[in-house]
Design a binder for these strands. Sequence first.
RNA 1: GGGCCCGUGGCGCAGAAUGGACAGCGCACCGGCCUUCUAAGUCGGGGGUCGCGGGUUCGAAUCCCGCCGGGCCCGCCA
Length: 628
Amino acid sequence: MKTLLAESTEILREAGLSDPKLEIPKSPEHGEVSCTSAFELAKRLHKSPMEVAMDLASKARNVIDKRKGLIKSVEVVKPGFINFYVNWPSYAVKIIEDVLSFAEAYGASDTGKGRRILIEHTSVNPNKALHVGHARNVCLGSALARLYRFAGFSVIVTNYIDDSGSQMADIVLGIKHLGYSNEPPEGIRFDEYCGDKIYVEVNRLLEQKPELSERKRLLIKEIEDRLSEGFRLSREIALRVLKEQLKTCQRLGASYDILNRESDVVAFGLWKETFSKLKQKNACYLATSGPKAGCWMLDLSGHKTLSKEGDEVLVKSDGTTTYVARDIAYAAWKLGIIERDFKYKPFGKNRDQSDILITDIDGEVDFKIRDVDTTIAVVDIRQRRPQEIVKYALGLLGAEPSKYVHYAYEVVSLSTKEAERMGLDVSDTEFVHMKGREGIYVKADSVIDSIKEKVMSETTQRHPDWHPQKVESIAESVAVGAFVYALVKGDADKIIVFDREEALKIEGDTGPYLQYSYARACRIIEKSPIMQTKVKRREALEEQEMVLLREISLFPLIVEESVKLMLLKKLANYAYGLASAFNNFYESCPVLTGDEDTMNFRLSLIKAYLITMGNCLRILGIPIVEEM
RNA sequence: GGGCCCGUGGCGCAGAAUGGACAGCGCACCGGCCUUCUAAGUCGGGGGUCGCGGGUUCGAAUCCCGCCGGGCCCGCCA
């Protein structure tokens, strides 16, 4: 397709149009490439669009005859479209040869060559198991990382561990003072135990017994002291929870380079340096009167909208830092505008056996992230304001604010039905927001497990001869595929209303639809005789073959657009269209029963499809299965 | 009060960056297609004032203004 666009541009240039406006027609009857420049030109030339188009087309026709490229003809249609038609037999061979030669690199580019990008995602408080909203973050973030790598960027993935907040104090309070065991009951994961039981129950107690709040307040203070028992305990809990959380994340296909603990932002002096730089630049001041007396404030007066809401507290009157303050220091570190750095210890391994490091004051490992061009923070949309403050503060520190990108996405909430299933009283609302401390949420793993169970029974029915282990392993992949696709296919700006019944669907516009089309293609290849290496030319292509080829040829453009607009849904929607094109082809174009030439052509087309879909699925994080 | 987001057939969505050729898809509903490469598929049918009202334009779901409905954010919390 890129070749075609380039060729059309050249043709029109030679025909006298300096900057042709091209588009890819929605309907194939309008050709492969279409030019709409006649409409604009008509105005300037005081002619009708049709006249202009006719004129351009006849000039273009001469050029086409001379150059004998892939484009074979031009037609002018109705109001003034100039449509280009292609020599399909040659074009088909060109597309397939292209894909086969690039293979796993088909669609990849060097757009990001030499550019470093740091992506922060997941960042779930280390006191609970991931719910479906967190899963949305993980899926978007990790897909973004893979997409950028595919586009040639050097990508570092980090996960920000907020281990210094009041939500940690709740768990410590439970274990240290309220008699909760530090071992979960048999069969319950530690992150679930903390989040589902201790966190929820402690918060219920805090509601009922106000005297506990004082205890909690003291505990928060204690945890800030790195020599205290409270600190030690909170750190131990956070680590154990984190270990469990990352199992879920890895199940979703995520991997990480570094885990940055919020408490270490202060411990390593990142805040101290950032604070003095802010003072240097006169970006903050000490409030001496009013309700914020005694606090160090970030001066927001220069910001068009934030200034309306007053300045932001960085250091509280008791000398401790706010969350935003630590986030600013962390962001300043990301962009390399402060000198201080973390040290790390090994934490564990990713699925590909690469190392995951975690910040540690006693650590000896260095991990330099210097010269990052862009940082992307995948953080839900409710944090837009604090994220904007961070960005603005970076500007005050002399950094280029556009290098700090807040990748915002809407939350996942629960359908009324789902809420009712949880025993909540819901009336006249269409959805209910999840609330961790109230126990109103649905865990990611439990959803994947439910889908898996359903897929297992489906698979067993279809393949009674399969070994249970094989069924299980494929069901896992299909379940993850269904879940991941559901979270990345939609607009990030739209709330996902979660409903378990909906989530269990594996037909229609779902992840398994993509996986299924891939598996069917694999079956044909598997049953085929050894194919020739040279792509067989085919003179009369079926409509379904052209549609599939057209989709395949679009992939590099889709990747490019997805990168530019940071839109994963673009890629996900494309994948669906691609699968659909294949299924249509599959239905109407028999491969193994045809004559040899047809079979050879179609086999290479299927290979090209597998490569394209495979690349697509890998970026999205949908597991590839060769049979299902 | 200030700022941001969403509103497309019964339900869930795509199309919106760069305005174009009859507004697509899935679910649900009705009716076909497995002695032929996996029917988790496929074909056909019914079902739409693209929230409402203006404006710009040869042309608006898409751009601009206003309104309505729903959601989020505005803490010495994180």
